[in-house]
Simulated assay, not measured.
Amino acid sequence: METVIPKTSTVFITLLRADVATLFSNRRSVIISLLVPVIILISWKGMIPQMGGPFALSTAITIGLMAIGLMGYTISISRDRDKGIFQRLRVAPVPGWAIMASRISIQLVMIMILTLLVFIVGFEYDKITLSAQGYLLTFAVAILGGAVYLSLGQLIVGMIKNPETVNATTRLTYFLFIMVGMFGELGALGPQVKQGVHWSPYGSVKLMLAASMEPVKWNNETTTTVLVSLGYVIIFAGIGIKNFKWNTK
């Protein structure tokens, strides 16, 4: 009997449908991930006249990207690995890159939805408007920023096998980025911390987003943060992929 091996494109579409169904079944966590940056944006309405619209929008999107890359991607990968889902997929005629590409594609869609949602709330509630170029450039930069946190999540799940430890590490990293990033950026933790935050994944992504919303303010420092962010992606993803195990044994 002849064995029929499905096309890679067919397999990828099937995986994509399965991941969409999984995302829908976990819609509560998805809604929470989308609501957190929106709530922050709404609560900062009184600060917008002093800090500026791009500051508020970039902060909200940055926090949302962290939730998607760390809380969403990392924890789901760790959970499915612990359940043996990846191990079962690996014995099927499915290339490894297709499995991960399907997961990442879902996260990229989430990033686009998050960015669009923040723009809508910012316009309707806070009356923040950007130029057409600003909106388009921000979408592109949001994908790069999302890649930073997705690669950081890959690093965590690649270096740590135990799902409980992954969960704890991810939540701690998320908390530290928000607290140290937000307060450190404002100088509340001292000049040295402020400088460190500036070039951290949090600061680099936020600066890129804020500059992309006002393209006329894009300068050499912004370009440097783009290169730094690309460096984070390469390093985090490289180590995370190299050390990633398809099972917890």
Rank of each mutant, 00 (worst) to 15 (best):
M1D: 02
M1H: 07
M1C: 09
E2N: 13
E2K: 12
V4E: 13
P6L: 09
K7A: 12
T8P: 00
T8W: 00
T10M: 07
F12D: 08
T14F: 12
L16N: 04
L16E: 08
R17P: 00
V20P: 01
V20M: 10
A21E: 15
T22N: 11
T22L: 13
L23R: 05
L23G: 15
S25M: 13
N26G: 13
R27M: 13
R28P: 02
S29A: 10
V30T: 14
V30H: 06
I31A: 15
S33G: 14
V38E: 02
I40N: 02
L41H: 08
I42T: 03
S43Y: 09
S43E: 07
W44V: 01
G46F: 14
M47E: 15
P49Q: 03
G52M: 09
G52F: 12
A56E: 08
A60Q: 06
T62Y: 01
T62G: 04
I68S: 07
G72W: 12
Y73Q: 13
T74P: 03
I77W: 05
R79W: 15
R79G: 12
F86P: 01
L89Q: 12
R90S: 08
V91S: 11
G96A: 12
A98E: 07
A98V: 10
I99C: 03
M100V: 14
S102E: 10
S102M: 03
I104H: 09
S105K: 06
I106L: 14
Q107L: 03
Q107E: 14
V109A: 11
I111M: 04
L114M: 03
L116Y: 00
L117C: 06
F119G: 01
I120Q: 01
V121D: 00
F123Q: 01
K127P: 00
I128T: 04
T129M: 12
A132N: 09
G134Y: 06
G134L: 05
F139M: 06
V141G: 02
A142R: 04
A142L: 04
L144A: 04
G145I: 14
G146K: 07
V148M: 08
L155V: 12
I156G: 05
G158D: 05
G158I: 08
I160K: 01
I160L: 07
I160S: 02
K161Q: 11
N162M: 05
E164F: 08
T165R: 11
T165S: 11
T169F: 13
R171S: 11
R171N: 13
L172F: 10
T173H: 07
T173A: 15
T173Q: 08
Y174E: 13
L176E: 06
F177P: 15
I178S: 05
I178L: 11
M179D: 06
F183K: 02
F183D: 00
G184P: 14
L186Y: 15
A188N: 08
G190C: 04
G190Q: 04
G196W: 11
V197S: 02
W199M: 06
Y202W: 10
Y202A: 00
S204V: 07
L207F: 12
M208Q: 09
M208F: 07
M213R: 02
M213S: 07
M213T: 03
V216P: 01
K217E: 13
T223S: 12
S229G: 06
L230V: 14
G231Y: 01
V233G: 04
V233I: 15
A237I: 01
A237R: 06
G238V: 09
I241G: 01
K242H: 12
K242I: 04
F244K: 00
K245S: 14
N247D: 09
T248M: 09
